[in-house]
Design a protein around this nucleic acid. Structure first.
Lengths: 235, 235
DNA sequence: TAACCAATTTTGTGATCACAAAATGACACG
DNA sequence: CGTGTCATTTTGTGATCACAAAATTGGTTA
């Protein structure tokens, strides 16, 4: 129920959303969402080079829109252009990781607070459904689905803030740690995963500002804490 | 016929500190720094469309690298691609402005703190020189120079943190409010400008963490406060 | 004068090309 | 078995083209 993959809707609704299917940047939009989704679910391995022609072939488009999207994602620090022009998913280092955690802890509770008053009972239902789905995926060990749903949970919440500044910043952060997250789950599995989603949902129901901030902060601290331990073993 | 490889137009004009002139993305780097500098000093007017071929002509390059840079800057929310494909400097709204201020107040003191221990006496001299220059420009009413130097002051400080995550986020924020800042200075002049740079320098000399955070936060609050008042009158 | 419409120009987009630099592989030599 | 060297292939980059959509212009009419 999350990704509206518009296949049949002929309505040329603009919306300026993620992927306009018949607007001016149609192909670029498709390529962008495809690669973004790939990054967020860990289908790209850090350190592995990603080639323009390769992606263009996979997606069945010309190299041109891929070039632009790769530049775009590089500007968001989701990808890295090395000095020889090759583009790759950046390797995670301890310093980078600590900065990402710090930035998430500063920005995400703030955005959650701004979203709180806009969240309705319908949103609570959506979030609960996503969270229930997450619990299923964790026991099943489906890491890719877990990452997609966890992202959906957080961003359904954040999007309610109607933010045009903070949200893109957080978007950039998620794109940066997601690929690394995936490699860790590949090593340690999904069994040890914990989250504070239920506390967040309860806080929303009660419109409790501080409780929501604490739930988000706790969710970040715990979730990233698991990753943080692994980074020391890996390198 | 075609395939005329540019024989003469490939003048190896180096000098850009940020963009290597003989590396793989030479022209793109030049275009990028040029447009970025233009945005930070307010040479682009919000709402005014910026065309690929136009910029390519001004910079004496083919449309190709300009296209990529424009996509890049759009991904950083420094530019905005409208539904018809046109690219323009986004208009500033009150909501957007409030978010930028909030994000700056959250991130920049943090980055200043991380930079503090890396700042030497030589950095103090550099910052002092920049600040003295700023005072000159304010009385002279040179808004463009002021903006360039104010940016130089803050980012010389922040760059000392060696940050690879927070710094790009702050970069994006500056690109977003700078063009709007320029239009305000064009209306009210630079006489009323105040900053907390000297307090920041003193805090660095004394390695006083909290004092530096306060100075940066105060600098942001005061500087953006002036802009904040104007946004209500303008629209 | 203001509003409407058709012709013209401008603009973004996707595709393809040519070229240089880099990566890759093959192979001889120590 | 390792190592350096050379040919081949891959890859990013900048340029150009063709096309559709959008903006602009110019003229006409009410």
């Amino acid at each position: 129920m999350a990704a509206q993959r518009s296949v049949s809707t002929a309505g040329p609704k603009d919306g300026a959303a993620d992927a306009p299917s018949s607007a001016r940047g149609a192909t670029r939009g498709q390529v962008d969402t495809a690669i973004r989704a790939g990054l967020l679910t860990g289908r790209f391995i850090p350190g592995k080079a990603v080639t323009i022609r390769g992606l263009a072939g996979e997606l069945g488009v010309s190299p041109m829109p891929v070039r632009e999207v790769l530049q775009r994602l590089s500007a968001e620090n989701a990808l890295e252009v090395k000095s020889n022009g090759r583009v790759q998913v950046p390797d995670m280092t301890k310093d980078r990781f600590d900065e990402v955690v710090k930035a998430r802890l500063l920005l995400e509770p703030e955005l959650a607070e701004r979203a709180l008053s806009n969240l309705s009972a319908r949103d609570v239902k959506v979030l609960t459904a996503i969270d229930d789905d997450i619990d299923q995926r964790i026991v099943n060990g489906d890491a890719e689905a877990y990452m997609r749903l966890n992202h959906a949970f957080h961003f359904h919440l954040y999007r309610a803030s109607n933010s045009k500044v903070l949200l893109p910043l957080i978007d950039s952060l998620w794109l940066q740690f997601a690929p690394f997250m995936r490699t860790v789950y590949g090593r340690v599995g999904t069994a040890s995963l914990v989250d504070h989603h239920k506390e967040a949902i309860r806080a929303i129901e009660q419109q409790d500002n501080q409780a929501l901030r604490d739930a988000i902060a706790g969710d970040i601290a715990d979730g990233m804490g698991i990753l943080g331990n692994e980074i020391l073993n890996g390198t």
